[in-house]
C-alpha cells in the first residue's frame, strides 16, 4: 500500500516531507559531512533521497526532480533513473545485511520517460538466493541480487531494474574509502548494529 505523503512543491531533489518521521537512517549518516550523491542531505547538488520501510521487507523512496536533472526539456535524464534504482537497492542491502557492497551489474528496462517536477516512487526488494538479513561475514564475497521499479503517482511502471551486488569486507571497505580510522570505526559500529537488528524485516524507525 502506498504511503500518503503530503504533496507540496519541493525544491529540486527533495523528497516530500513524510509524516511521523518514518525515514530510515542510513548508516553513513553517522558521519557529519558524508556526501553521497544519492542520499546525503549535505550534498546540495545530490538527490537527497530518503528511504521508508515497507511491511514486506522492501524499502521505498519518493522524489521529484527539477530542471537541474533534465535532459530533453521537461524530461529527467535517464541516467538518474539508474542512480535512483541503484541507490535504493544498495541502501536496502546495507540496511538488511549490515554489509557494504559494490554494484557488479545492473540492467534497466526503461518503459516511459520521467517528467521533471513530478512525484515518483522507487521500490526495491532483495531477491532470494543472496545472504539473508543479519548475514554473517560469510555473506561477504557472495553475490546479492535485488530488483526495483520506479512508479508514477498512479502506480504505473516507469522503469524497472535488477542488479547484482558483491558485499565487501570491512577491511576492503576501509582501504577503498577516504575516511579517517576513527570515522570508519563509527560507521563500522553502526553497520554492526544494523546487522544485529536486521534479522527481522526492516521496520520503520524514527530518526
Amino acid at each position: 500500500m502506498m504511503h500518503s505523503h503530503p504533496i507540496e512543491p519541493q525544491p529540486a531533489g527533495q523528497a516530500p516531507e513524510a509524516t511521523g518521521g518514518e525515514y530510515l537512517p542510513v548508516p553513513w549518516s553517522v558521519l557529519a559531512d558524508y556526501r553521497c550523491f544519492g542520499c546525503s542531505p549535505h550534498n546540495s547538488s545530490g538527490l537527497r533521497l530518503r528511504f521508508a520501510a515497507r511491511p514486506d521487507g522492501e524499502i521505498d523512496t519518493r522524489f521529484r526532480l527539477g530542471r537541474g536533472f533534465e535532459s530533453y526539456p521537461g524530461i529527467v535524464h535517464g541516467g538518474l533513473i539508474g542512480v535512483i534504482c541503484d541507490e535504493t537497492m544498495g541502501n536496502l542491502l546495507v540496511l538488511r545485511t549490515g554489509l557494504t557492497a559494490l554494484t557488479t551489474g545492473m540492467r534497466l528496462r526503461y518503459v516511459t520517460s520521467m517528467r521533471i517536477d513530478t512525484d515518483y516512487q522507487c521500490v526495491a526488494r532483495l531477491l532470494p538466493g543472496g545472504p539473508e538479513a543479519g548475514s554473517t561475514p560469510a555473506g561477504v564475497g557472495g553475490l546479492v541480487r535485488a530488483e526495483s521499479e520506479i512508479l508514477d503517482a498512479d502506480g504505473a511502471l516507469v522503469a524497472s531494474a535488477n542488479a547484482t551486488y558483491r558485499p565487501i569486507s570491512m577491511d576492503s571497505a576501509r582501504q577503498r574509502m577516504d575516511l579517517r580510522p576513527e570515522e570508519f570505526d563509527q560507521v563500522e559500529a553502526v553497520l554492526a548494529a544494523t546487522r544485529l537488528t536486521s534479522a527481522a524485516p526492516v521496520a520503520g524507525t524514527s530518526h
Binding site: R109, V111, T112, E147, L157
Partner: peptide
C-alpha cells in the same frame, strides 16, 4: 509503453 510494461513484467 504497454508493450514495454508487459515485457518488463515477463522478464521479472
Amino acid at each position: 509503453v504497454k508493450v514495454l510494461v508487459m515485457i518488463s513484467r515477463v522478464e521479472r
